[in-house]
Design a protein around this nucleic acid. Sequence first.
DNA 1: AAGATTTGGTTCATTATAATCACCAGTGGT
DNA 2: ACCACTGGTGATTATAATGAACCAAATCTT
Lengths: 263, 263
Amino acid sequence: MSTTVAKALSLLDYFSEAEPEIGLSELARRSGVDKATVHRMLGVMCDAGLLEKRGDARQYRLGAGVLRLARVRETAFPVSSLFQQSLADLSARLGETAHASLVSGRALATIGISESNRGSRVSLVAGELLLMHCTASGLAVLAFSRAELVDRVLSEPLVARTSRTITNPSIIRARLEEVRLTGFAEADQTAEDDVYGIAVPVFDSDAEATGAIAIATPAHRMTNDLRSEIIAALFVEAEKLTVNSGGRMPAAFLSVAARFSPT
Amino acid sequence: MSTTVAKALSLLDYFSEAEPEIGLSELARRSGVDKATVHRMLGVMCDAGLLEKRGDARQYRLGAGVLRLARVRETAFPVSSLFQQSLADLSARLGETAHASLVSGRALATIGISESNRGSRVSLVAGELLLMHCTASGLAVLAFSRAELVDRVLSEPLVARTSRTITNPSIIRARLEEVRLTGFAEADQTAEDDVYGIAVPVFDSDAEATGAIAIATPAHRMTNDLRSEIIAALFVEAEKLTVNSGGRMPAAFLSVAARFSPT
DNA sequence: AAGATTTGGTTCATTATAATCACCAGTGGT
DNA sequence: ACCACTGGTGATTATAATGAACCAAATCTT
């Protein structure tokens, strides 16, 4: 709960596309950490290249170091580029916004987005961290993760993002059971008002969920037909991604996915 | 020298394309930090999503978090993609390997490479950190950086990568003076045997060097004609990149660059 | 333009933290 | 069966982080 490195690294979570540059005081306020402490930590992270302060300005932003790290990971294990293709296909076919995220600690990191070209669409903030307990992607991933991760996520206090967010661990566990049976997860305005999300997990070589692909639609537009169409499309792409990234699906998942596969 | 966060973050430096997965003991040995300490740090970084351990395996690799961070930075300040285009042009035109790097703490982070298609060429390890004092890119950047950064780099012990590496701070300062006059930097086998590098800096909106683009050729192939051709091409691209990324060149640089510009 | 407020940044005594060493248990090779 | 590795763990000691008060400069209010 209180190792200094963890505190320092948690500061990185506050940077997103919506707020790519943050000042010292603001970051201290947001994180609840003392200004002096934040200042020292930011200094160290600048030194390491993870952050940098814009020349004269007194704002901090993500540094060149993260570009290098991402490049290293992506050349060694290219998943981001792989996902992007599937997302483009999905949003083109369904006309809705598609996004992908990978497990990153106890949250999900959005690594790809492909917006629909409709006038009314869900617009996501790229690079935002998704909470596990209230997003379709999070539930899809948790349902097929080791109990260890589930426990870690559910042992922390669960914030309510909307009036419909479920914050009771037991109820969430029950929902995960449902997800395990159906193979996909839904989030009807539990993460954001007016947003309906449907997600299907993607697996690694150990048949563990490493992430999920999802479709987000304006809640009012969701119909039974669209829902079925989305689920079927997600299953096809998720299987493709799992296989192409060298993963395999767990037995429990294969049986439910079979109902949707065109084979 | 000894903040714990700095030590933890320095562990990330050991991951590169050549070695994308590292074990606990290996990392402890390489970094000179106690195994127990490394173990705790790796755990924390896994928790933050910067690292992850491959399922069953007992190897650590860069996590999905870095992908997210890079995405955030790149969508807010797209430089990586911008550089990639210039690199492709350079390597195509010159037939030699081109690469770009950005200041990352007290080193340079390689963020792009475009290899030549010749049989004999310089092959770089993508995502490796470049040392400031012995690479052409490093000298090009240092020559046009704040004295503060120069002092920080030269105050540390300078490792000799080849028999020709200059490790004397005073001599390096003299070389930086030359670079300031000519506008480009050369490294004749000072970073790696048989590699001859030529680099030109790229500037930000404060006319400070943020990085450099460089050409690396097999040392034996370098001739006066090729050298001139490379320098001229680099100047053109560096100016283009500086302008397109919203930067401006310092007055001192403009005068020397003018000799090479086609205008 | 004068005052009020907030910003980035710094200091230093107090306190909580992280480093260390010896030690386990499992694995692969010979 | 052994040996030399590996990843991982706890209790003690020494180290590093913390946070309230403080400052100068920039910014917003009036």
